[in-house]
Structure formats: structure tokens, C-alpha cells
């Protein structure tokens, strides 16, 4: 199995390149996720293969449910380890406008990232299938549903 970053030959089944640490296994999964289908609905796909469909609403709040504070986001990431990975109760909002989507950070404690770049709080940023979305330390790839 050849590393696409440094060309080092690694043993079959290795998860990360022994030389440069690049991911070997998930490359294919991410490539497979990069299908352009802007007109359709979107999914958040976690590295273990489980998915979370983004509800068909114009504004979808992403965060962590907290009944005591009466916070019930549209997409609850508690079950994905949201607490441990620094997801805020109201972390970000995904806006839909026709076939276009944006993500906007709601001044979360640990930030929102698109393709490893931090999104400015309260500033919508365009997203599309194939992008990596990260809420705090919790990463998903965005897929067409």
C-alpha cells in the first residue's frame, strides 16, 4: 500500500504511513465521498461509517443536547462523543438556500473548521459534498444523501 503523500510503501492493512503519518485507509473513503450532488440532501459521515442526515430545514442547529439548560439542537452530536470532543451546546448552524449550503459558527468554544481551516464566528461559509467539517475535535465528511 503506497502512501499518496510521501510514496513510501507500507504493509497492507496499515492505517497510517510509517514514514510521514498520513492516513492510508480513509483516503479512499474520502475520495468516495467527494461526489458532487449539490441539489440533494446532505449527510454528515463519521470516520467509522455511521451517518447523520441533515434535516430538511433552512437552518439546522448543530450542537449537544442539554436538557438542564433546555438546549435541544436539530443535530445532537452527543452520541458521537460530542462532550469529550469539545462540541458546544449550540455550536454551529447549517443554512440551506435552494441547493446551496453554508455553515456558520455560533461563537463556539472550540471552533468550527471546514477542510481544516477555522471558520470565523458568525460568518457563513459555503460547504459542499466532499468537504471535511469539524466541530471542536469532532470531524465528519460531508456527503450527498
Amino acid at each position: 500500500m503506497k502512501c499518496s503523500e510521501c510514496q513510501m510503501e507500507n504493509i497492507e492493512g496499515a492505517l497510517f504511513c510509517e514514514e510521514c503519518g498520513a492516513k492510508l485507509e480513509t483516503m479512499n473513503e474520502l475520495q468516495g465521498a467527494a461526489m458532487e450532488s449539490p441539489a440533494g440532501r446532505l449527510l454528515l459521515a463519521s470516520p467509522d461509517g455511521s451517518t447523520l442526515e441533515i434535516p430538511a430545514k433552512d437552518d439546522v442547529v448543530v450542537g449537544r443536547e442539554d436538557p438542564i439548560s433546555e438546549v435541544f439542537p436539530d443535530l445532537d452530536l452527543t452520541g458521537f462523543g460530542g462532550m469529550e470532543k469539545g462540541v458546544s451546546r449550540k455550536h454551529a448552524v447549517i443554512h440551506r438556500s435552494g441547493a446551496d449550503y453554508t455553515v456558520e459558527d455560533m461563537t463556539s468554544t472550540n471552533g468550527t473548521y471546514v477542510n481544516r481551516k477555522k471558520v470565523q464566528p458568525n460568518t457563513p461559509q459555503a460547504i459542499k459534498p466532499g468537504d471535511e467539517l469539524r466541530f471542536g475535535k469532532l470531524a465528519f465528511s460531508l456527503k450527498a444523501a
Binding site: F16, K23, T26, E29, P47, D48, G49
Partner: peptide
Amino acid sequence: AKVNAEVMNLVE
């Protein structure tokens, strides 16, 4: 099978 996410995270 796909990679188990918990193991993947620890190996990373």
C-alpha cells in the same frame, strides 16, 4: 470491513 473509528482514533 471499514476501519473501527475508536481504534483508528487511538492509532492516530
